[in-house]
C-alpha cells in the first residue's frame, strides 16, 4: 500500500453555462480545488450529496472531462501533458464502472463483444480464440456463466448487467477502477453481491479503487479512506475509521447522523443533527465556506474567507475555520 499511484493536485472543473443573451457565460464550479493521493491497492471513497461534483471528479481524473485547472499525476506522469494517442494507450490501466448498469452496455452488442471491446482495442493482434478465452475467464471471475457470452444486455437483470460492466472494466487487468455509484441503481440484495464482488476483485488483483457514492454506509464498507465532498469542495478527508469515529467537520457530522440505521432501538436513541435548508445552487455558491448557509456553527468569518485545507493529524485533513474550537464528538449514531 505504499506505492503512490495517483496524485490529484488542486483539480477544478468549471463548466461555462450560457446565460441566454449575447453569448454570455457563467461558470458552474462542479469541482473546485480538490487534492488527494491514492496508493496501489487502496480504495478511496468519495461521498457527497447530489450536485457535489463527485461524478465530475471521477470523470476529470480519467480525462473523460477536461479539467479546468490542476493536475492529475498518474505514476509520476502528468496526464494533462499527454498526447491523445499516449492517453489512449494509458487507458488500459484506468477503467470505469457506471451507475446505470443497462445504460452502460451497448444494446446492439452481445455480452461477449461488450466485454471484449477494451481487449480488442488495446491488443488488436489477438486472435479470436485467445479473445474468447480471456472473455470467458473474466466472465467466470465476475460470476457470469461463460455460456451466456452470446446473450444481449436486455436479457439480463440489473445485477448481471453490472457484472458485465465490471468484467469489461477488469479484462485488461487495470491498475485503477473508478466506480461511479456502482450499486445505487441496484436492489439491496443485489447491491451486496456487487459490493462483495468488487472487494474480492480488488483484493485478488491489488486494484486501486475510487468508489464514488452518495451512500455513506456502502462507502464505509468498501473504503480505506473517505473523502467528503460538498458543492465541489473537499470538506474532510480521513481514514475510514477516523472519519466515522471522530468526524471533525460539521457537514460530515450531520451526514453521518442523517443516515438511517436499520435498528429501531438505535434510531430512537440517536440524536440527528438535522441540517436546515437544502443544497445551494452550484451556480451561485455561498461566499467563503460553501457549507456555511447550512452549518449550525457558522460565524461571520465563514462568509468572508474560503477555509484552507488543514491537517488535523497525519492522514486527516479538513476545510473548516472552526474545527479546533468545535468538539470532536463521536456521532450519536455510532454510540
Amino acid at each position: 500500500m505504499s506505492e503512490q499511484l495517483l496524485r490529484v493536485e488542486d483539480l477544478s472543473v468549471h463548466f461555462a453555462l450560457p446565460t441566454g443573451f449575447l453569448g454570455g457565460h457563467r461558470p458552474l464550479k462542479a469541482v473546485d480545488g480538490v487534492s488527494f493521493t491514492l496508493a496501489a491497492g487502496e480504495t478511496l471513497g468519495i461521498v457527497g450529496e447530489s450536485g457535489c461534483g463527485k461524478s465530475t471528479l471521477g470523470r476529470a481524473i480519467l480525462r473523460l472531462i477536461e479539467p479546468t485547472a490542476g493536475r492529475v499525476v498518474w505514476q509520476g506522469q502528468p496526464l494533462g501533458a499527454l498526447a491523445a494517442d499516449a492517453l489512449r494507450g494509458l487507458r488500459r490501466d484506468l477503467q470505469i464502472v457506471f451507475q446505470d448498469p443497462l445504460a452502460a452496455l451497448d444494446p446492439r452488442m452481445t455480452i461477449g463483444e461488450i466485454i471484449a471491446e477494451p481487449l480488442v482495442t488495446h491488443e488488436p493482434a489477438l486472435g479470436r480464440a485467445a479473445i474468447r478465452a480471456r472473455v470467458e475467464a473474466i466472465m467466470a471471475e465476475t460470476g457470469l456463466l461463460p455460456q451466456l457470452i452470446n446473450r444481449y444486455p436486455h436479457e439480463f437483470s440489473g445485477g448481471q448487467c453490472q457484472r458485465v460492466g465490471i468484467a469489461r472494466a477488469m479484462i485488461l487487468q487495470p491498475k485503477l477502477i473508478v466506480c461511479d455509484e456502482p450499486v445505487s441503481a441496484l436492489d439491496v440484495s443485489i447491491q451486496a453481491q456487487i459490493v462483495n464482488l468488487l472487494m474480492r476483485l480488488q483484493a485478488s488483483h491489488g486494484l486501486a479503487m475510487l468508489f464514488i457514492s452518495h451512500d455513506l454506509a456502502v462507502v464505509r464498507h468498501v473504503s480505506h479512506r473517505i473523502l467528503v465532498l460538498y458543492l465541489g469542495r473537499l470538506m474532510e478527508l480521513a481514514e475510514c475509521h477516523d472519519l466515522l469515529a471522530a468526524p471533525r467537520h460539521p457537514y460530515t457530522q450531520a451526514l453521518i447522523s442523517a443516515v438511517p440505521i436499520p435498528d429501531p432501538a438505535r434510531e430512537r436513541r440517536k440524536r440527528r443533527i438535522v441540517l436546515t435548508g437544502e443544497l445551494p445552487s452550484p451556480l451561485d455558491p455561498p461566499s467563503g465556506c460553501v457549507f456555511r448557509t447550512r452549518c449550525p456553527h457558522a460565524r461571520p468569518i465563514c462568509a468572508e474567507q474560503i477555509p484552507r485545507i488543514e491537517p488535523v493529524r497525519f492522514g486527516h485533513s479538513i476545510a473548516c475555520h472552526r474545527w479546533q474550537e468545535l468538539p470532536a464528538t463521536p456521532p450519536a449514531a455510532l454510540a
Binding site: 439491496v188 440484495s189 451512500d215
Partner: peptide
C-alpha cells in the same frame, strides 16, 4: 438485513448477500 452495509457496525469481510437474481 444481512445485505445492508451498516454505518453503526463494523462488518469485517463480505456482506451476507442473498445469492441469485430477483
Amino acid at each position: 438485513l444481512g445485505s445492508m452495509p451498516r454505518l453503526d457496525l463494523a462488518q469485517p469481510g463480505e456482506l451476507a448477500a442473498i445469492p441469485g437474481q430477483p
